[in-house]
Write a protein that binds this DNA or RNA. Sequence first.
DNA 1: ATGTGGCTTGACCATCTGGTCAAACTACAA
DNA 2: TTGTAGTTTGACCAGATGGTCAAGCCACAT
Lengths: 197, 197
Amino acid sequence: METTDPEKRILKAARTVFERDGFNGARMQHIADEAGISKASLHYYFRSKEKLFDRIFDAYMDKILPLIGTWDDDTDEWRPKVRKFVRDLMGVFRDTSLLFMVQELHRDPKRLQARLDAKRRGPNRFIKYYERLRKDGLVRDTDPRSILITLQSVCGYPTLAAPMLCGSLRMKPAEYTKFLMTYADDAADHLIRSMEK
Amino acid sequence: METTDPEKRILKAARTVFERDGFNGARMQHIADEAGISKASLHYYFRSKEKLFDRIFDAYMDKILPLIGTWDDDTDEWRPKVRKFVRDLMGVFRDTSLLFMVQELHRDPKRLQARLDAKRRGPNRFIKYYERLRKDGLVRDTDPRSILITLQSVCGYPTLAAPMLCGSLRMKPAEYTKFLMTYADDAADHLIRSMEK
DNA sequence: ATGTGGCTTGACCATCTGGTCAAACTACAA
DNA sequence: TTGTAGTTTGACCAGATGGTCAAGCCACAT
């Protein structure tokens, strides 16, 4: 089922290696091996490790950014929206390692700012959405910033700190991954409880 | 105010550099510079980068492990216990970067298992505690494993993903760090809400 | 057959990095 | 003063790593 297009094969291989080893731990030779080509060919397609990394990073952002649109879509009540957001966000984190993103943002926070400054202006969309709900008396009168942090925390941390949580719960990784399905529903309930009056 | 004891100076320098750059990104030369000694001297005290890292790792675990004792101490009602746990855990994460721990556990999950197998047997203490509360009819009848994950998530993620959350909240890092005080109280409230009947 | 342009690669390079070592320095005992 | 044990370091090494390049390969047009 492998693509013959070398560029796509390289990008897939790079994602695998970068997510597993992080930018500093990743080796161009390993990416080349994974893609089944020579290191020289790899440099023929992507001039440097940095450029290749940028491509992976950007693809990741393109997966996440559409999710913030959830809060602009007015066709649903807020509870299903929360459930959908949690499900979608955890889905992205299941497919793509959040760790390498957090690592890289720690290494160079400017990388994120460059993208945010271009795309997002004004207050965060969830904050705006929550304040609208609050004005309408639909949710509890509390600081939406704390809700936002909690929202991202309960979705992101479980995959980020999987090895630690496997330890705490005495689960094998496969068992843990399966349990996260159940957890996602519980987490959404938890958030809804935090927001309800 | 610097210690003259070289070993302590080295450990402090190593913590600074490892937390900032991660194991793969950290350079022995940088640690030596930070400690104000030569690289050769650094190797005189700690034979290898691995050994030095192990010392930092172990010191970190020694800070965290005592916290699980919270759930064995029966002098309080459960609500204050939760508040105390959140405050203490976030305090540790404020002083010591959680990121390098998560990174390293991802690189080599066996490192954690070695410590857990020795120290912890049987079910997690929080799980046991929650089940006792549930039997006594004091808390909601829900899966304690999800509560455990949520508990650790809302404490750990805010510092782990600080750059991302600074972006979402349009805050400067200093402002964000300050806000985490307020957040800690809110997070404890949310947890209590999700445990209450 | 011959040329052409894109693709591939083994060999190579400069640099970096963890780690070693012999020589030098220091404090203190004999 | 001399010896000794612990400490410090500049110089050095071997291996790894990102990146380059000239030469070769291959499909296809002429």
